[in-house]
């Protein structure tokens, strides 16, 4: 089976300083892939490199077979790729509905069906449609952020620490929704700090250290790996 997304020997970073030192990564259709690693391992940078926000100096990135290395975000979104950054991932002064509608900007139609689908996925948002997102809780913001990314019907969703700073209950809910989104056929590539919970439902997982691959296996296998458990999962 060919991969939906493939990163091969990617090197790159900011202002001539490489943070990624040869990363290989693949996501197949309908898969949930989790990336873990210590701080500064280049997890978020890898996400940004895929999305054209960090310059790739060497190596290549392919999506559905097409070369997307260093492609600008506005060209990636129409291809079926969406990205939810860790921070600043909603437009705070806009309403829930406006945030979601803007997610569908590249589509040119009113995306009513997608809007209904997202609201069905996150029913809390339905009654808050006209509320400014800046006034909402962290968990609700995260729902808006993920909802916005879903409005283009992506085939692959990139999530950078979707549960950072959330309460255990909200974390539980977001993970549960991510699985629901995946069940609809959307592949997911996710950087996650709550590694134990995420690995439990991940199809596969990558461990990055120092901007390079360290280990890769199925989610539960990584979880069971004694050395990795000790390194990142708090024993």
């Amino acid at each position: 089976m060919t991969a939906l997304l493939e990163m091969r020997a990617v090197r790159g970073g900011y202002g001539g300083v490489d943070i990624l030192n040869g990363i290989d990564l693949a996501v197949r259709e309908r898969e949930i892939v989790v990336v873990i690693g210590p701080n500064g391992a280049g997890k978020s940078t890898a996400m940004k490199a895929i999305f054209g926000l960090v310059a790739v100096r060497e190596g290549e990135i392919r999506f559905k077979g097409q070369d997307i290395t260093n492609m600008a975000p506005e060209r990636l979104v129409p291809l079926g790729l969406s990205y939810v950054p860790q921070e600043r991932n909603v437009f705070p002064s806009l309403t829930v509905q406006e945030n979601l509608e803007l997610g569908a900007y590249v589509r040119r139609d009113d995306a009513a069906a997608e809007l209904a689908e997202v609201l069905a996925l996150f029913p809390v948002l339905e009654e808050r449609r006209q509320q400014a997102v800046g006034t909402m809780s962290g968990g609700e913001r995260q729902m808006v952020a993920i909802g916005r990314a879903l409005m283009t019907r992506p085939e692959l969703l990139l999530l950078d620490e979707p549960t950072a700073g959330l309460s255990p209950r909200a974390t539980e809910l977001i993970f549960e929704r991510i699985r629901a989104i995946n069940q609809k056929g959307v592949a997911i590539l996710m950087v996650e700090q709550n590694a134990k919970q995420a690995l439990a439902f991940a199809d596969r997982a990558y461990v990055l250290v120092g901007g390079a691959n360290r280990y890769e296996d199925s989610g539960p296998a990584v979880l069971a790996h004694p050395e990795i458990a000790e390194m990142f999962l708090g024993g």
């Binding site: 705070p92 806009l94 509608e101 803007l102």
Partner: peptide, 18 residues
């Protein structure tokens, strides 16, 4: 709306495909 979004957060506007 895109203008307001971009004034809120230009980076996120790019990521959104605006």
């Amino acid at each position: 709306k895109a203008m307001r979004a971009m004034a809120d957060d230009p980076d996120l506007a790019r990521i959104t495909g605006i």
